[in-house]
């Protein structure tokens, strides 16, 4: 099992006030799965994604990653896992301004153990796979929203991670561009073999996944298989 959560809890402490966000989450995600996490604002879906993505710590329960309790990893090892086994795509892209597409995609490699001689091939491949080879030396502020998100996907891909986390990747995009991004994520799952964990509140977007996990007030309310899965019709896919 890739990811196993047992009674996972997260409570925020602000001074005297305790705000419980996640209660007793039980969830398993296998390698190669495409899972959508849905739920209204405040349901805890982002917090859950951040905990699974090792960006935040749970306050209770168990989280086993690669069958090992995350408490057993050192901070440095966790950074290494984020670097080589995980890729993040955020709603607000989070690209470095005044840094070319090429250098943005290079960023994770600089923190990795991957040999520098491989960097160029990896960056070029990643940029090409999102169809931005002609934009490699542009700066993000000269790109459209969809193009920026594709740069972010290329950045998430460059170290060849097992899991790709997408936190409302289409939230800032129009529906046509959003569809294009989802096509890429779909292909990454079906053709690239990456595990994809997606957060969205659009049913149509969620149906690119094999499975939809619905959260409400910090608990898993429903965990259903997608019967009629959306498929990619991307021209970019090979």
């Amino acid at each position: 099992m890739l990811i196993r959560l047992e009674n996972l809890q997260k409570t925020y402490f602000t001074g005297e006030v305790e705000t419980p966000v996640l209660h007793d989450i039980d969830l398993c995600i296998d390698k190669g799965e495409f899972v959508s996490i849905m739920g209204p604002s405040g349901s805890g879906k982002s917090t859950l994604l951040h905990i699974i993505g090792l960006l935040d710590d749970p306050t209770g329960g168990e989280y086993l990653l690669y069958d090992k309790h995350i408490g057993k990893y050192t901070k440095k090892q966790l950074a290494g896992i984020r670097n080589e086994n995980m890729g993040f795509v955020f709603q607000s892209f989070n690209l470095l301004k005044r840094t070319s597409v090429y250098d943005n995609v290079k960023l994770p490699l600089m923190y990795s153990h991957i040999k520098e001689t491989e960097w160029k091939t990896r960056i070029d491949t990643a940029i090409e796979s999102v169809g931005l080879a002609h934009r490699a030396h542009h700066h993000p502020n000269s790109l459209s929203g969809g193009e920026r998100q594709r740069v972010a996907i290329a950045r998430a891909l460059v170290t060849g991670p097992d899991i790709i986390f997408a936190d409302e990747p289409t939230g800032n995009l129009d529906s046509k561009t959003g569809k294009m991004i989802m096509d890429i994520l779909y292909d990454l799952n079906t053709k690239g073999g990456h595990t994809v964990i997606l957060i969205t509140h659009e049913h149509d977007t969620a149906r690119y996944a094999q499975r939809i996990v619905q959260l409400l007030d910090g608990v898993v309310k429903k965990d259903t298989k997608v019967t009629k899965r959306n498929t990619s019709n991307s021209k970019l896919s090979k």
């Binding site: 960006l55 440095k76 950074a79 290494g80 989070n94 960023l107 994770p108 923190y111």
Partner: peptide, 15 residues
């Protein structure tokens, strides 16, 4: 935000 992003893509405390 940049620091957050760098950490998300694998930068350690030391980096």
């Amino acid at each position: 935000k940049e620091v957050g992003l760098r950490k998300a893509v694998g930068a350690t405390h030391h980096d």
